[in-house]
């Protein structure tokens, strides 16, 4: 279980770390090509967008694990002890209901795009491929929220901050 968790962490980090590096390099290559040869790669822009969407959704899962999603924690900081625990549970329940439903409903978009053909204009790949980012990221978020709910009741099992990068 611990091993699986660590593998999952590593997977998320490698995916988003390399994606954001590739984006920077792609942009550089495109500027250089245009400056030297007056032309560019026609799929750069589209690829950059899809990679950043990948970074966002997989990164969102890491944010869940780190508890770093931006929120208004005014009330949260006022509460102590039991009340705080129940509020946390309540927040995480809303979150997990949302991410799980969205992971499910995003499959509808994939289905639609597999039934009909829709191609990404520049890359000319079927659109369901980039759309797979949605169920992937939202499913990861769902797992993370379930983990967090588990840690509310078993705080001893929560990995330390360092382990979570």
């Amino acid at each position: 279980m611990q091993l699986l968790n660590r593998l999952l962490n590593r997977f998320e980090e490698v995916v988003i770390g390399s994606a954001i590096l590739i984006v920077s390099l792609l942009i550089l290559v495109n500027v250089v090509l245009r400056y030297l040869f007056g032309t560019g790669i026609n799929w750069t822009e589209e690829m950059v967008r899809f990679l950043m969407i990948l970074v966002t959704f997989v990164g969102a899962s890491i944010c869940v694990r780190q508890g770093s999603h931006i929120s208004v924690d005014f009330l949260f900081n006022l509460l102590k002890g039991k009340a705080k625990k129940w509020l946390t549970l309540c927040i995480y329940l809303i979150c997990v209901i949302f991410t799980a439903s969205m992971a499910w409903y995003s499959l509808e978009i994939i289905q639609q795009n597999m039934r009909f053909i829709q191609k990404a204009p520049a890359l000319q790949i079927p659109m369901y491929i980039p759309y797979l980012i949605l169920p992937l990221g939202l499913f990861l978020c769902t797992i993370r929220y379930i983990q967090e709910i588990y840690y509310i009741f078993r705080p001893g099992n929560k990995p330390s901050k360092e382990e979570a990068l």
Partner: peptide, 15 residues
């Protein structure tokens, strides 16, 4: 490490 940190910050805002 910097890439991963930046990517996480990105996700925080972009989402």
């Amino acid at each position: 490490k910097s890439s991963v940190k930046a990517a996480v910050l990105t996700a925080q805002v972009m989402i």
